[in-house]
Design a protein around this nucleic acid. Structure first.
Lengths: 123, 123
DNA sequence: GTATCAATTAGAGTGCACTCGAAGTCAAGG
DNA sequence: CCTTGACTTCGAGTGCACTCTAATTGATAC
């Protein structure tokens, strides 16, 4: 039942990242625009949490901090950079697709190995 | 047109791993039984190359060196360990399946984001 | 007013999987 | 003989993405 603005602890709890990681992301330049309260403490609103979740998705899907930084820098350049941003996302999508195919291939190999082992057990 | 036994260079060339990595894998205990020639040099036969390719698959599909080491140790214990080995492979298969589903979810999110951006561009 | 607690910063440490370098050995070629 | 080149070992270095520590500040609770 908490509501914005959130402390860094609360933001961490709501996004599943650690407090350390939130600060690290800010330092790394992929989490810009976090405001501070009168005491200099970070405070996060819903939009920030949304961006953090988006970051989390990009990281989990294998995009490097470096590439995300590029994407963020483009985002800060306004609407002229939308095409460039789409290219990054498109490339990433292709990379994910390739990873999925690769993994599916490995699944087949594993199945074969398992069949082989289970054959050994029975005979 | 080379044929066994292979030097470490040749084994590296044939498997796509580096010479360094082949030695590292041996030290790490996941590439046992590599014989040496009169000069103490490693020599690899087809079976070794097969195992190296299998290792490569396990690594590429996200199995840790640590887990592979466990698997190798079981392999060296003879046929009694087949069930345990199957369990490891089965768990890994599940992990790969989970990863694939996760990635497919991310693909959807990316598609949505791209639709959103392309909407911005047009209007 | 002082203890507690959450926050701040800069910078160092961690874990994984390589990756490389230095120093030395050894066999074949000119 | 001496150079070249591939090999050896041991141990240190790299890159990424965190992850943690230490020292400090500042607000709230009693």
């Amino acid at each position: 039942m908490t509501e914005p603005p959130y402390t860094i602890q609360q933001a961490a709890a709501q996004t599943g990242l650690s407090v350390h990681t939130l600060r690290y992301y800010e330092d790394a330049g992929i989490l810009p625009g976090i405001r501070r309260n009168g005491s200099g403490h970070r405070c996060y609103d819903e939009q920030d949490l949304g961006w953090i979740r988006w970051l989390k998705m990009l990281r989990n899907s294998g995009m490097s901090i470096e590439m995300i930084r590029e994407f963020v820098q483009l985002s800060q350049q306004g609407n002229d950079s939308i095409e460039a941003r789409c290219q990054i996302l498109d490339a990433h999508r292709q990379k994910i697709r390739a990873t999925i195919s690769e993994l599916e291939g490995y699944l087949h190999l594993l199945d074969q190995k398992l069949l082989f082992y289970r054959g050994l057990e029975d005979g």
